[in-house]
């Protein structure tokens, strides 16, 4: 059941993320729904499940766009494991945690992707100010989407009888 929730939430979030329009005024930022799923698993599950979620989210994002396979995987795995390190030191179910973690994760993922894309010569014309506004845009969208994604998946988990955070 755990895996079912993971796959359903991943595919649903990927579909919505692909359809919703980008935020033009802030570096073409898109609502980071897949990153939201990774954060949910990072804050509520053990390392192995975080890795599973990060790799799947990364592969989905890379496959559904022009980014080379592996770039988003690397960024999501890094952020997922980083947040997972703090799992026992924060109030994982509190919306404020999601907001703070969401802002940090959005900035880190944007920066990692920027470095990888520029390093590979795929986005050479992109200015640093564009990346900064993109980070800001993703953070702002993350503030709205992360709590929603977190509580939606948590509700689905509970409805299907999956173990909650305290029992893991």
């Amino acid at each position: 059941m755990n895996r079912l929730v993971l796959w359903v939430s991943m595919f649903t979030c990927a579909m919505i993320q692909a359809v919703v329009p980008a935020w033009h005024s802030l570096g073409q930022a898109k609502a980071p729904l897949l990153l939201g799923v990774v954060l949910y698993y990072a804050l509520s599950r053990v390392t192995f499940q975080v890795l599973e979620a990060s790799i799947l989210a990364g592969l989905l994002q890379d496959s559904l766009g022009p980014i080379p396979v592996g770039f988003s995987v690397l960024a999501f795995v890094f952020v997922g494991l980083l947040v997972n390190q703090f799992r026992d030191r924060v109030f994982g179910e509190h919306w404020f945690t999601h907001v703070i973690m969401g802002i940090g994760a959005s900035v880190i993922v944007t920066m990692i992707l920027y470095i990888l894309l520029v390093g590979a010569g795929l986005r050479t014309g992109v200015s640093f100010s564009f990346v900064m506004s993109k980070s800001l845009g993703m953070s702002l969208l993350g503030i709205v989407t992360f709590p929603v994604v977190y509580f939606s998946i948590e509700k689905l988990d509970r409805a299907l009888g999956n173990v909650n955070r305290g029992e893991i």
Binding site: A18, Q28, A29, Q61, G65
Partner: peptide
């Protein structure tokens, strides 16, 4: 048209 670039790094549509 099905969707736009999922990452927002490119100007593409699917």
């Amino acid at each position: 048209v099905l969707a736009r670039d999922i990452s927002g790094w490119w100007q593409t549509v699917r």
